[in-house]
C-alpha cells in the first residue's frame, strides 16, 4: 500500500520532487494470469536526500537481484505504467547493459535524476532498472515523446552522467510503440 513521503526533517536536504520506489518481479508461469499492476509492490516514498539514502541503503543492489526483477523510481504521484496521465504521450530512453554494470549505472542515473541534472523542466517521469537473464536494461521515462529537443537533451545528459562504454547502444521508444510490439512489460 502506498504511503506518501514524510516532510524533510530538520537538517535534511529537500529534493526538487518527492519520489516513490516500486519493485516488481515476474515469476515464471504467471505471465498471463495477473496483470503488471498487481506485480508492482510499493517500497517507499521520500522527499529528501537523507530519506533517499535511508531507503536505498536497505535495498538489494540490482546485481544482487535474481530472475526477472525491476526497480521503478518515479516522481510521487506518477504510477510507473504507460496508462498514467504523465506517461500516456511519453517515451523512454533504453540502455542495454552487459552484466556487471547495472548497479553502478543505476546509481548514477538515480543520483542525476534526484539532483535535477537533466534540466528539462517537468519532463522527467522516472527511471527503471530491469534485471534480466542476459543483459540488464536501464530506462528513463519522459512525458512528451514528440518533443525532440528534450529527448536529445536527456540523451546527452545520460551519456555524461552514466559513463557508459563507448559501444553502448541507446534507443528511444515511445510508449505507444512499446505497446504495439508488446515489448514494454
Amino acid at each position: 500500500t502506498f504511503r506518501p513521503a514524510p516532510k524533510p526533517g530538520p537538517g535534511e536536504h529537500p529534493l526538487q520532487f518527492n519520489y516513490s520506489i516500486w519493485f516488481s518481479k515476474r515469476t515464471p508461469g504467471n505471465k498471463t494470469s495477473t496483470t503488471f499492476g498487481q506485480h508492482l509492490k510499493f517500497v517507499a516514498s521520500f522527499a529528501s536526500v537523507e530519506q533517499f539514502w535511508a531507503v536505498y541503503s536497505h535495498l538489494a543492489r540490482p546485481s544482487e537481484l535474481t530472475g526477472h526483477s525491476d526497480y521503478h523510481l518515479f516522481k510521487e504521484g506518477i504510477r510507473p505504467m504507460w496508462e498514467d496521465d504523465a506517461n500516456k504521450l511519453g517515451g523512454k530512453w533504453i540502455i542495454r547493459l552487459k552484466k556487471g554494470l547495472a548497479s553502478r549505472c543505476w546509481e548514477n542515473l538515480v543520483l542525476a535524476m534526484l539532483g535535477e541534472q537533466f534540466v528539462v523542466g517537468e519532463e522527467i517521469c522516472g527511471a527503471v532498472v530491469s534485471v534480466r537473464f542476459q543483459d540488464d536494461i536501464l530506462s528513463l521515462w519522459n512525458r512528451t515523446a514528440s518533443d525532440q529537443a528534450t529527448t536529445i537533451r536527456i540523451r546527452d545528459t545520460l551519456k555524461r552522467v552514466l559513463h557508459l562504454p563507448s559501444n553502448t547502444v541507446m534507443e528511444y521508444k515511445t510508449h505507444t510503440d512499446s505497446l504495439k510490439d508488446h515489448s514494454s512489460f
Binding site: H13, P14, L111, A112, L114, G115, E116, Q117, V161
Partner: peptide, 21 residues
Amino acid sequence: GTRIVYERAFLMQCRNSPLAK
C-alpha cells in the same frame, strides 16, 4: 522558481550523514 540541484559528489557525501540512516 529556483530548482534544487545537487551534484553527485554532494549526494554521495550526504550518504554518510547520521540523518540518512
